[in-house]
Design a protein around this nucleic acid. Structure first.
Lengths: 144, 144
DNA sequence: CTTAGTGCAAAGATTTTGCAACACC
DNA sequence: GGTGTTGCAAAATCTTTGCACTAAG
């Protein structure tokens, strides 16, 4: 699976690919799930609130449940940027998040930036980092 | 301020030091605050729940409020280890946390381990990391 | 005796769950 | 039509807040 390669990628293809995954598992494709997927692919780091606004006819718990399903399928991940709600994004094109504690800005950095730390922590502590689950907090250039 | 230098440090001195800070600001020293401080210094990465159990006569919101005060004073920090409640610790002897997503184990690593990443992120993205606020999630050696 | 701090109760924010009704396959 | 899914309402979890009362200085 490779999504998000281009900036204005054709979402329809990615949606179909994910829907195909669902069908392959005997899961069902519903109006709500299409709407959630559309919203998910149309936004950058959507929260459930954003998805809910983008798919107003879908009840909140349905969104949470489907997002959980997508995580189980390995299609998406969620990340905690700060004290607020989690944000969701596609698993492909792995990256980390710098989250400004002052203005809320989110800066994406390539996964490679944490490679050295990951190797070191694995060697020294036997600990396998999966650091995408939490953002790295701090202050962006504008907030000093 | 330097606390936690030794493993079985005499807490009373640290408590008195912090109480002195409070008094110096015209703040008040109460039975509840003493109990919270004692609990805070006696535990490793206490949550509010742990502090509450250790200081059963202190109401929960009082604990939250006092912890906020201590953060404002720069005496403590809180860190989110995962999906659960925040944990609190003294600011001195800075360290980061590896939090096992499987078993909940918390491994402390020296702040120096993130120095290279911190420098790189500052240079390349103008972003000043304060990564103590969130733990680095992953899998500990036992949980593979 | 003045004002900071406390307890209580209630609300806020985010997420989860139970269950009857619904709709995809 | 059977079973996976949804909506609704309620609850769970963690934290914050309003307010009258208490107690530290």
């Amino acid at each position: 699976l490779q999504y998000g390669a281009g900036v204005t990628e054709d979402f329809a293809q990615a949606v179909d690919e994910i829907l195909g995954l669902l069908r392959a598992q005997g899961r069902r494709v519903t109006t709500q799930r299409r709407a959630i997927l559309d919203a998910l692919l149309a936004h950058d780091h959507p929260t459930v609130e954003v998805l809910s606004a983008a798919a107003p006819d879908v009840e909140g718990s349905t969104i949470y449940r489907f997002l959980d399903d997508l995580e189980d399928l390995g299609v998406i991940d969620h990340t905690h940027l700060g004290h607020g709600p989690a944000v969701y994004h596609l698993v492909a094109d792995p990256h980390h998040h710098l989250a400004c504690e002052a203005c809320g800005a989110v800066i994406e950095i390539p996964a490679a930036e944490l490679a050295a730390l990951r190797d070191r922590v694995r060697e020294h502590y036997g600990f396998v980092l999966s650091p995408r689950h939490f953002a790295l907090p701090g202050r962006c250039v504008g907030c000093g």
